[in-house]
Write a protein that binds this DNA or RNA. Structure first.
Length: 116
DNA sequence: GGATTGACCACCC
DNA sequence: AGGGTGGCCAATC
């Protein structure tokens, strides 16, 4: 397998700031791959030391086995979680625009970062 | 090497 | 608001 792929994905996932989330597809795109499934696969293999909880489905939902963990972690970071769902429109992180923020319409929902 | 499985996404009805 | 299908990439049996 191409270790480059794993590195790419790890780089993106590890670059997601607290209080924000990304979709497997988004991570894949920024990682240079076209398969979102591959992202989840990598996270499952070596995501143990990565903020994988900041990665969810594009639908805002999460896998059954992770539902408990995912939502819990996000909720601890200040992410809006409701009915077992996350507000992808509210916390969707945009790689490259982390410091752009030109519009002052709405501030960042991310409060404290330090986790555990 | 063939078939199946995954922490998925977009499309269509 | 929900169900079925094709595509994608790698690991596994």
């Amino acid at each position: 397998m191409d270790e480059r792929t794993w590195e790419r994905v790890r780089e993106v996932v590890a670059g997601i700031p607290a209080g924000h989330v990304l979709g497997y597809g988004d991570v894949a795109r920024h990682a240079g791959i076209r398969s979102a499934r591959l992202v989840g696969r990598i996270l499952a293999e070596d995501g143990a030391d990565l903020p994988w909880h900041r990665v969810l489905r594009s639908d805002g939902t999460v896998a059954e086995h992770l539902r408990r963990r995912q939502l819990a972690e996000l909720h601890a970071e200040g992410v809006a979680v409701g009915n077992g769902r996350v507000d992808m429109r509210r916390h969707r992180w945009e790689p490259g625009a982390e410091r752009a923020s030109t519009d002052g319409s709405s501030g960042c929902a991310a409060g404290s970062g330090t986790r555990g």
